[in-house]
């Protein structure tokens, strides 16, 4: 991997690193995926036979967790850049914990849906929540994988700000902010469309 990073970099006279641009392009693809699912939600809703229910409040708690994790990761990045190795590592740990908390709370949210009588197969209105939030959780899980690598780097490598590590951190940061913002969009969508 490292040598390929340099194939791209040595060739570059650009304002944006090619890998960062590629990540933004990937985000555009993911946005299309969720845009189509939320459109499908609206189309199906307009067709009637749509069960109305209140979104379990646990989803607000999970939202708080992922928003907080975005902030801690950003803090970790700033600490990394400013040379505060302790804070950088500490906030990185906090981010991974908050990220995992988000996933646990999402799972609790699905349980809460079952408890209020909307298990899977009840009505498409509930099924869409499972599908969309489940697909989002899968993307967060990918983010946890990336964060784990970042965590290993934070603790196993000697603290040093190199161009390569900076780019890698920024890629992690961008993706994590992205899945965070994506969830906030989805939550707002669920609330407004219900």
């Amino acid at each position: 991997m490292t040598s390929n990073a340099s194939v791209a970099k040595t060739n570059t006279r650009n304002k944006i690193h090619p890998h960062k641009f590629a990540l933004w392009a990937a985000c555009a693809g993911i946005v299309m995926m969720f845009a189509s699912l939320t459109s499908a939600y609206l189309v199906r809703q307009a067709a009637g036979n749509w069960l109305e229910f209140r979104l379990p409040e646990i989803f607000f708690a999970s939202t708080a967790a992922i928003v907080a994790s975005s902030l801690t990761l950003h803090g970790s990045y700033l600490a990394f850049m400013r040379g505060n190795a302790g804070l950088y590592r500490g906030l990185m740990v906090a981010t991974v914990i908050l990220g995992l908390t988000f996933l646990v709370l999402q799972y609790e949210g699905w349980q809460a849906l079952v408890d209020i009588g909307v298990p899977l197969k009840t009505n498409p209105s509930g099924d869409f929540i499972y599908v969309i939030s489940g697909l989002h959780a899968a993307h967060v899980l990918g983010g946890i994988g990336v964060l784990t690598v970042a965590l290993l780097h934070a603790f196993m490598l000697e603290y040093k700000v190199t161009a390569n590590r900076k780019v890698r951190f920024e890629l992690t940061l961008t993706y994590w902010h992205f899945v965070d913002a994506l969830w906030v969009y989805l939550l707002v969508f669920f609330i407004l469309s219900a």
Partner: peptide, 14 residues
């Protein structure tokens, strides 16, 4: 491709 194939994936997912 980048903008349309993810939509197909959504359709397949459902």
């Amino acid at each position: 491709g980048l903008l349309s194939f993810p939509v197909l994936a959504s359709g397949f997912f459902l």
